[in-house]
Design a protein around this nucleic acid. Structure first.
Length: 279
DNA sequence: GCCCAGGTATAAA
DNA sequence: TTTATACATGGG
């Protein structure tokens, strides 16, 4: 996706392929907040960003982004190199029943988040709601992360590996605290090799993640999709199982191919928009 | 107060 | 291999 540089920062076209709210509020990330005017401020990779739509200019503005390394970082984070419009068309062509569903989240993009942060946040997400997950993640950063300007970076696994459940009490994360420690310990010890997950065959990658206590099928799939950008991953929860049975009987996730994760998002948002069809 | 959250570990069928 | 329950906590 092309961009232009202006006084305000980096600007990219506001097309149907990139919707900030759909992308940042869909439950794939937990460190973005919207102010009253549609401006999202978030934190990733030790960097802070405010991003908003400018309807008049027809652009999405990455405010204050003026250097090449910053541009490169956020272009990668928002996955600007992938043509989501083309992917959407391909998916809808191969699976016609997806066409009407894609209308409910056409501008969603799969962020390239850091694997460790995604692992932790999806462990925290289980049997939980987004507002509270955000609160726990914020307390995790302020209590154990390195200060970066006025914010705090996400704490490294080594920082957490030596802690106890009692140490994590300030997070108020409940039963998930012990899961967080299991993840930190296995990652620090090397039993869970996060960089290897980028290229390992999916089944091996899943098995590696599931060594962690508290990482089941759903969390492992979320980590692979949202943390490793393995777009063939297909997080399967109760809703998704019902949606699959209702609309794609006999389908397996892998039938959606290399972009199953994006198809999953269309299906998920569609099913959430039509709860009456699943009662 | 009550219900529930994009689950998982564990113990029974 | 499938089905029930506890789990910690707090948002709505």
């Amino acid at each position: 996706m092309e961009y232009q540089q202006t006084k305000r920062g980096m600007e990219i076209p506001r097309t149907a392929d990139f919707d900030l709210a759909q992308t940042l509020e869909c439950g794939q990330c937990f460190r973005w907040e919207q102010d009253g005017q549609g401006r999202f401020t978030g934190f990733a990779g030790g960097r802070r960003l405010s991003i908003r739509e400018d309807g008049a200019a027809g652009t999405i503005v990455l405010e204050g982004i003026h250097t090449e390394p910053e541009r490169a970082f956020w272009a990668d984070y928002f996955d600007l190199a992938l043509d989501y419009g083309a992917v959407r068309q391909q998916l809808c062509r191969e699976h016609p029943d997806l066409a009407c569903m894609a209308e409910f989240a056409p501008g969603i993009r799969i962020l390239r988040q850091e694997p460790w942060e995604a692992l932790c946040t999806f462990i925290l997400s289980q049997n939980n709601n987004i507002p509270r997950i955000k609160g726990i993640v914020q307390r995790l950063c302020t209590n154990f992360g390195e200060p970066v300007g006025e914010q705090f970076a996400f704490p490294a696994p080594e920082r957490l590996a030596g802690l106890t459940v009692d140490d994590l009490a300030p997070l108020r994360s409940g039963f998930r605290a012990k899961y967080l420690l299991s993840a930190a310990q296995l990652v620090t010890a090397g039993a869970v090799d996060l960089p290897a997950l980028y290229t390992l065959p999916m089944e091996q990658a899943r098995a590696m993640l599931r060594q962690i206590t508290g990482v089941g099928a759903k969390v492992a799939e979320c980590v692979l999709l949202y943390g490793l950008h393995r777009l063939e991953a297909f997080p399967m929860d109760v809703w998704m199982k019902r949606a699959m049975q209702a609309f794609f009987p006999g389908y397996a996730p892998e039938d959606f191919g290399a972009y199953a994760g994006i198809a999953q998002q269309y299906l998920f948002h569609y099913s959430r928009s039509h709860p009456e069809r699943f009662s």
